[in-house]
């Protein structure tokens, strides 16, 4: 099987300080990978390097494109990379307002990616927006409301709808449930899990919440000080951690 994303020796330095270094992994279609680690461990830096928001100092991020097969997205031309991020890629930000246009209605937010790839039929765009609102459990009657009138959980679900409407193959998520209260988190996780399965999505989820990765991620990568210290099957890493840092991380989770 051809991997969807192949990451080879990614490194990003901030001056003399290591952002992340020597990161390599393969992600296969339909796989969900979690990246965990404490704040400052380099997980967000890595995610941004992978998603093309930051330029890594070294390494390759090879994506299996629909038309040209595997291409290094680091050296790919900018228009091509931007096209990818509007079509085959999606990025779910921790703060919904970073990923939404707050002055544009929910329908317009969802429709933007469709219009960006050339859809020019208002009725059809609107129908798909309504369909997606339904899929992320937002009432149809809210389609013309701006996200400023939405709760945090709704904003996050709207951001997900806006990202998934073009049927991407790879979704990057940066703390998708961060800052939401737990009941809202559970609903969002359930939703994400369903969408990942239905659409056969591959995803890379950065979080510091081990419960989130246990429920969503097939695989886990544990980072500390910019280095990957352990990788493996999610339940194996959490139940039988090998590295000292992972053991500390797992044993530090508060029990409810």
């Amino acid at each position: 099987m051809q991997s969807l994303l192949q990451v080879n020796n990614i490194q990003k330095m901030y001056g003399h300080r290591i952002g992340c270094t020597d990161v390599s992994f393969d992600l296969y279609p339909g796989e969900v990978m979690g990246i965990v680690g404490e704040s400052g461990s380099g997980k967000s830096t890595l995610l941004n390097c992978l998603a093309g928001h930051l330029e890594p100092d070294a390494g390759e991020v090879i994506f299996d494109t629909r038309d040209r097969g595997p291409v290094d997205t680091v050296t790919m031309s900018e228009p091509e990379r931007r096209m990818l991020s509007r079509t085959d890629w999606a990025f779910v930000h921790q703060h919904a307002r970073d990923g939404l246009r707050m002055s544009v209605s929910a329908g317009g937010n969802i429709g933007e990616r469709l219009m960006a790839v050339g859809d020019r039929h208002y009725g059809q765009i609107r129908d798909r927006a309504v369909d997606w609102l339904d899929r992320v459990e937002i009432e149809e009657s809210r389609v013309d409301d701006r996200p400023t009138a939405f709760s945090g959980g709704m904003q996050q679900r709207l951001q997900i709808a806006r990202n998934l409407v073009t049927g991407p193959r790879l979704v990057f998520m940066d703390e998708p449930t961060g800052g939401l209260d737990v009941s809202v988190q559970a609903r969002l996780l359930d939703l994400l899990r369903g969408l990942v399965r239905e659409m056969g999505l591959s995803a890379i989820i950065v979080t510091h919440d081990l419960a989130v990765v246990r429920l969503l991620a097939d695989r886990l990568m544990v980072m500390k000080s910019g280095h990957v210290v352990e990788t493996g099957l999610t339940d194996q890493v959490l139940d039988d951690p090998q590295h000292a840092y992972t053991q500390l991380l797992v044993s530090s989770v508060l029990q409810v």
Partner: peptide, 15 residues
């Protein structure tokens, strides 16, 4: 990348 221009028109129609 002119999709955004249509977002403005979309908003007009929806409102």
């Amino acid at each position: 990348e002119y999709g955004l221009m249509h977002v403005k028109l979309y908003e007009d129609i929806s409102q």
